[in-house]
Amino acid sequence: MSADPQDVGVRVRSLLAAAGLPAGERETAGLVAAYAVQRPSVDALFEVPDTADARPVLLREVVVPRD
């Protein structure tokens, strides 16, 4: 399902504003275009079948106190 281009523009502008990033119109247009291209690939990550039981590789410094 492809998102309405106008919705994508609103969404991107909203996310940039929420992050406090004052992108100008030309740059925002570029980010909107990139988002429209890349979002399906990002969404597809949730469909990778073998991830059902996968744990993320997140860095944690685990320190075990010495006895």
Partner: peptide, 13 residues
């Protein structure tokens, strides 16, 4: 946040 975590799950797989 979910995108990011899912990316790390895919990396593990």
């Amino acid at each position: 946040g979910a995108d990011y975590v899912q990316a790390q799950r895919v990396r593990a797989v």
